[in-house]
């Protein structure tokens, strides 16, 4: 058996790798859209909430959501790709659609007020954004991109804390929204 053959690269040559990074960049477009949608909805929902404690917490979440959205630019830099234009506009449209859907579903279920319906929809939109970030992290792990993967980890962790908080208030406010049919 000869041992003169040189090393074999598995999925590491330049052309193949570049194609992989293009796929990561495409997925990051989804991260931008889902997180930007969440950021906008968190701000809108905070403005609509009249209960001062919940309003304050949602404003904090909205601020953090903006930081998480801005961090996506750094992910593009690591993989040497440009962020797409237009995804944030899509997010603005998506935020409106999600809010309308939340109101539609909530009202069909006997909750007439905007506040609670927005909060409930915010829970679903954040879950989508968590999944988008966490999936991006898996792509970084798959491709040996440590800076990429490890910078996402604290974002996912903080967003999951936010998810618990939104869920708690959604559940706390549910009886008033449905049984008392209040404005909340």
């Amino acid at each position: 058996m000869s041992s003169t053959a040189g090393p074999v690269l598995v999925e590491l040559d330049e052309e193949f790798w570049s194609g992989r990074l293009d796929r990561v960049a495409t997925w990051l477009g989804n991260v931008v859209m889902t997180q930007s949608t969440f950021h906008r909805m968190a701000g809108d929902t905070a403005e609509k909430i009249t209960e001062p404690h919940i309003r304050e917490y949602l404003l904090e979440i909205s601020e953090a959501a903006g930081e998480h959205e801005a961090a996506i630019g750094e992910l593009y830099r690591i993989i040497d790709r440009e962020p797409p234009t237009g995804r944030r506009f899509s997010a603005a449209v998506m935020a409106r659609v999600q809010q309308a859907m939340g109101q539609l579903i909530g009202k069909a279920g006997g909750a007439p007020g905007d506040e609670w319906n927005h909060l409930r929809q915010l829970l679903l939109v954040n879950l989508d954004a968590i999944g988008a970030f966490a999936t991006a992290q898996q792509l970084g792990l798959a491709l040996g991109l440590n800076e990429f993967a490890e910078s996402i980890f604290p974002i996912v962790r903080e967003k999951e804390k936010h998810q618990l908080l939104i869920q708690e208030y959604m559940l706390e406010m549910g009886p008033q929204a449905i049984l008392y049919k209040g404005d909340i």
Binding site: G6, P7, V8, L9, V10, E11, L12, D13, F16
Partner: peptide
């Protein structure tokens, strides 16, 4: 599986 020989200096 996609493979390629390693060019000099690749490693």
């Amino acid at each position: 599986v996609h493979t390629a020989p390693a060019a000099p200096g690749t490693l």
